[in-house]
Structure formats: structure tokens, C-alpha cells
Design a protein around this nucleic acid. Structure first.
Lengths: 158, 158
DNA sequence: ACAAATTTGTTCTATATGGAACAATAATTA
DNA sequence: TAATTATTGTTCCATATAGAACAAATTTGT
């Protein structure tokens, strides 16, 4: 006998929900982006805030913890915790700012760069997989639109 | 004197990162979708899984807890916890399935519907705000593309 | 028909996470 | 200059969350 529930189409909700676009953005993040963070944690041993530190410092040569919090929109205490762990792991170094004793400048180490490259390679593959359903022109359209949305989101106060 | 850091453009990372589209999807979700869940929690007292139950049962007349877990891609234990709380709050009712003693059919109550409408109205406003940066044709394009992506994501095994 | 495998819902547990408060420092205002 | 306000990084704490293991029921395969 067939399974009782097998005819239920779980994706109907996408069109039924009152805020279909926001819902699908959320769904996509939940279905793909967060499992990816989970994979990074399992395979590389870094939690999200820790990986975000690598990501930011691989692209900016010097940042404060606060900068990273702003760039990634994570709370400062999460970043603070992550900084300590990344220092212990040897992926970051920290030098006090002589001009402002409150803060310290963070830099990525050689080991940090290597780790960042490994994780990035994995995430690049994941991205390719996700967007393989779109044609090249669709992909280009999506890129423009998500750029607009993300830039707008970055202007919103926290 | 001006603030020392004020010239740093935090959105440069969007283009520098190795997986720019996936990153921006993640960023958008973090900047907008999750704060929205947080607002729902503060303003309406429901956590994500609890609201997801309302959402699903407002659109399907009868679902099992497992159905909701599949539709929303949340773990079953989160849904299980949420079901109990929603039963206590009077937003759901539960009837054992006579054909399968393992499971029970969930339905939304009158009170649950009212709560769902209140929350939805709020989320509809949020959605309009987010997408206000897109023109009508851009919005329509985005809708098509995110639909494809979400539908694809829904086919991925968990 | 019977053993093995699967499914549902649950509890237990570990952990990632974010809010709040805090001390130290710096910037602003009077 | 002195006093107030803001900022940075941190610790503490409460909680949302997901994995693992489990019992009960059902389905599958031989």
C-alpha cells in the first residue's frame, strides 16, 4: 500500500502565503545557507561568527571586532567570543590600536588564509549547485536584483 | 574631529566575497527575515516554529506535525515543542488519527486564525518595505527567480 | 506470517546565540 | 577644563535550537 501522505505537495505554501517573496527568501536561506554553515561547522570546526571573521579579514587587511560586527550584522558579543577562539586557533592576530585604547586591529594569519581558501572553495561549489537551476541570463538578472536588495538592507539601521 | 572609522564602506564585501550571490541571500535573510522573526517573538510572543505552525495550518486545513516539519524544513523536535505550546495557548487543536495511531492531525482554531491574521498583516508590511527598492518589473522578475530557486531547494533532500 | 526496517512524536542534552549590563576609553558639549 | 555622552570589547545569563536516542506504531520484505 502506498504511503498515506505521499500526495501532499509541500511547496504549495510558497504561493499561498501572504508574503510569498519574503517567505521564499527565508526558505532559501533555511534550506541552503544555514545547512551550509552547519557543514562548515562539521567539516572545518568553525561556527558562523568564526567563519565570518575569516571572510571579512580575507578581504579587508585590518578590521576591528566592531567593524566585523557591522559588516556581517552579527551581535558584538558573538564576534568577541569568536575572536578569542580564532586567536587561540592561530587564524587571527590582534594588535592594540595605539590611537584608541578601546579597540584592537585584527588581521588574518597565513594559517587563517589557508583555512579561508578551503572553506571558500566549498562554498563556491555550493553556490554553483544552488544556482544551477537558473540560466545564465536568469543568473545575471538575479545577481542584479539581489544586489539591490542587499545594498538596501545594509542601509537599514540595526 | 570626525570619527576615525567613518569612511569604511561596509558593503564592499558584497562584491569581494567568493560566492557573492549566496552571500547576499544569506545577508538579506540575516538583515531582514530574522529580525522579523524576532519582532514576531517580541510583539506576539511566538517563536519561529510556533508561528510556522499557524502559517501552515492557516493554509492547509489539516496537517500532522511531521508535515509541518517538512513544509518548513524545521526539525521535528522543534515542531513538537511548538505544538504543545500552541495547544496550551488555544491556537491549535489536535485529533488522533484513527488510521495511524502514531500521528495526530492538527488544525488551527478560531483564535489561531485571528493571531495568524495579525502576524501576517505585520509581515506583509515588512515585505512591502523590503521590496520597495525594486520597480514593478524588477519585482516581477525577482518573484520568478526566487520561485525557481525555492522550488529547487524544496527538492533537495534534508 | 514474521522479522526487519521505517515512521511519528517525544524527551534529554549540548550548544550556539543574542540581550543586558559593565568597565575602560574616547568624543562631545557646556 | 569639566561633565556628560558614546563607543569598544567583554562577561554573564536566559533561551532558542538541533542532534541523538527512544518507545510505540506501522510498513516492508522474505
Amino acid at each position: 500500500m502506498a504511503r498515506k501522505n505521499e500526495s501532499l505537495d509541500y511547496s504549495n505554501i510558497f504561493e499561498a502565503v501572504e508574503f510569498p517573496d519574503a517567505y521564499k527568501v527565508s526558505y532559501l536561506a533555511n534550506a541552503i545557507v544555514f545547512p551550509t554553515y552547519e557543514d562548515v561547522r562539521k567539516d572545518f570546526g568553525l561556527v558562523r561568527a568564526e567563519y565570518h571573521l575569516l571572510l571579512c579579514l580575507a578581504h579587508y587587511s585590518e578590521l576591528t571586532a566592531q567593524d566585523v560586527a557591522r559588516i556581517t550584522r552579527r551581535p558584538r558579543n558573538s564576534i568577541s567570543r569568536a575572536v578569542h577562539r580564532m586567536l587561540d586557533l592561530g587564524f587571527l592576530k590582534r594588535v592594540p590600536d595605539p590611537d584608541d585604547a578601546r579597540q584592537a586591529k585584527l588581521q588574518i594569519t597565513r594559517e587563517g588564509k589557508i583555512m579561508h581558501q578551503k572553506i571558500s572553495a566549498y562554498l563556491v561549489d555550493r553556490e554553483a549547485e544552488i544556482f544551477s537551476v537558473l540560466s545564465d541570463t536568469e543568473r545575471e538578472s538575479f545577481r542584479e536584483l539581489i544586489r539591490k536588495l542587499a545594498n538596501f538592507a545594509s542601509t537599514l539601521k540595526r
